[in-house]
């Protein structure tokens, strides 16, 4: 079975809530783009409200973050090639043998 046995089981570990489905995520950034095209500041931790003159480096980091998500989402939004669904169709037919 191609070594899948080595894949550790990550759900339901005692004391772990990190993998709950509905956990909100923040992209680990302190800021997010706002709909009006401005950049909004949003602290991960209690931090100082950023100064008006936005730190150039932060602005750049934010730009990279936006671009990175765009790069990722571009693929997410592509139609799924049929081979993928074919894999599951075959797997399903072979496994359950019903339907």
């Amino acid at each position: 079975m191609m070594g899948v046995g080595k894949v550790p089981f990550i759900g339901n570990r005692k004391g772990h809530t990190a993998l709950k489905r509905d956990r909100t995520t923040k992209y680990g950034e302190e800021v997010r783009p706002r709909a009006d095209g401005m950049i909004d500041q949003q602290q991960n931790s209690a931090g100082q409200r950023p100064a008006e003159g936005l730190d150039e480096a932060r602005l750049r980091q934010r730009a990279i973050g936006v671009k990175l998500r765009q790069m990722f989402d571009e693929v997410v939004n592509e139609p799924v090639p049929d081979e993928f669904l074919e894999i599951l169709r075959r797997a399903d037919g072979g496994q359950s043998g019903e339907r």
């Binding site: 079975m1 191609m2 899948v4 080595k6 894949v7 990550i10 759900g11 993998l19 894999i87 797997a91």
Partner: peptide, 30 residues
């Protein structure tokens, strides 16, 4: 596609209701 096949083959080791996205990403990463 390899990750998808592995995830399917390993489906019994996944506990339904837990984070499948993280689980499949881990498979793909490995």
């Amino acid at each position: 596609q390899d990750a998808l096949i592995k995830a399917w083959d390993a489906r019994l080791s996944f506990q339904l209701g837990t984070n499948m996205k993280a689980w499949t990403f881990m498979i793909l990463r490995n």
